[in-house]
Design a protein around this nucleic acid. Structure first.
Ligand SMILES: [Mn+2]
Ligand SMILES: [Mn+2]
Ligand SMILES: [Mn+2]
Ligand SMILES: [Mn+2]
Lengths: 219, 219
DNA sequence: AATAATTTTTAGTCTAGTCTAAAAATTTTA
DNA sequence: TAAAATTTTTAGACTAGACTAAAAATTATT
């Protein structure tokens, strides 16, 4: 039996949640991102556990198994490659491609993705600066990570940005976020993933997840 | 409620069947192409009739309504544009693209299709010579006829094929029958209607009536 | 025209994926 | 640490889209 769109979406979302924590992922967190009710999530976790894609213990949250992570990385790879295609070849803006890529990521053809990868010249990151896994599911080591992926309480140095749009860079300047700044996360708000950030030892300021995703730091 | 993949497939298949007849389309014919049972087709016809996409009378077969035909043509447009993309940009052979296009045709984004159309330079036909409907659902008038209908001794140019199954397309490739080839009928055998065919001035080769029916030429 | 064969529809069932409401378990708070 | 709040699971129901078996309608054949 082939994997369904619903299952692919659950795996992808569990993967995304796992990127920013080493804890088990909660039913509610998944429910919020899938836009389903918690009861539906519980049901699906049980099924995916049967199939060996997740390790799930009632009330204890869930983690991707090795097999599940491989599938998730493949979907992430497809999503991000299609985003590069949409921006670089089709002329979309970086803020217009996510919804379309949500559909395209489910297209099933390994050879198509290989050819697309070549056609796009083997990009290492998508239009939002996110790393693109290779065929084997290995993420390129960029030496920097999005601020959004830095764990609570940790510090790093701002070494780049994932895009160059004027509005974005103007916002960074206004926030006093410049190259070389020392950044320390003091809080991550679960509701909107916004981040409280201490810049060069100053009192924390709040930035959105969208900004945090596009600020690249080195630990 | 948005249209489902299943509904899109039914509409597309009813459209395809309508291309080669002016009769109402039978439940069984649809069942064969959708690979469903007749009972399931009856069920879906009832539902699609409710939605105004088909005109359906119990036991009397079905026809696309104006609205249904518009949807079908949109899916056909997407299918054929994606096939052009796969062959012209991704380097697939013409016998490798149909299955992938069956998936891509369901991607929902009008602006994506407009951009793809432009990116491909507004092709009028797909890799199999089939006409690509424009945004409004209008088909270019190509003036093609089956090779089987061309009289003895006459010549024409291969401009399309009437089906895109992989086995058929692979046979054409083996016979050196590709789009643009110059074809001259040197003999028609009364017994089985097989055809002796001179391709681009080379010594004649024999092809079956079945092949001749599915090769489209322009005089 | 009656009978036989075929096609189509109906009736009832199943699975995937969702939901709501209520129960159970866990976590937080006093 | 007991009560309260929150999270998670269970139980039961629903829809879409499929199926099988049997009934009904249509079409073909004597
Ligand atoms: Mn995206
Ligand atoms: Mn992205
Ligand atoms: Mn095709
Ligand atoms: Mn085609």
């Amino acid at each position: 039996m082939a994997i369904s769109f619903a299952e692919e979406n659950y795996l992808k979302i569990i993967y995304r949640l796992s990127e920013s924590t080493s804890d088990d992922i909660s039913t509610n967190a998944i429910a919020e991102l899938t836009q389903n009710k918690a009861a539906s999530v519980t049901d699906m976790l049980r099924k995916m556990s049967e199939k060996g894609w997740v390790n799930y213990q009632k009330y204890q949250g869930v983690r991707l198994s090795e097999a599940g992570e491989k599938i998730a990385l493949d979907i992430v790879r497809k999503h991000r490659l299609w985003e590069v295609f949409l921006v670089n070849k089709m002329g979309f803006n970086w803020d217009e491609v996510h919804e379309i890529a949500e559909q395209l990521e489910h297209i099933e053809s390994e050879v198509l993705i290989d050819k697309l990868d070549a056609f796009l010249d083997y990009p290492r990151t998508d239009p939002h600066g996110d790393p693109i896994p290779n065929k084997k599911g290995e993420l390129p080591q960029l030496g920097y990570i999005p601020l959004a992926n830095m764990p609570m309480g940790k510090a790093g140095k701002l070494v780049g940005v994932a895009q160059d749009s004027a509005v974005f860079l103007q916002l960074l300047t206004k926030l006093n976020l410049k190259l070389g700044a020392n950044l320390e996360i003091t809080e991550i708000n679960a509701f909107d993933l916004s981040v409280s950030l201490r810049i060069d030892g100053n009192p924390p300021v709040l930035i959105s997840h969208e900004v945090a995703k596009n600020v690249l730091i080195k630990r």
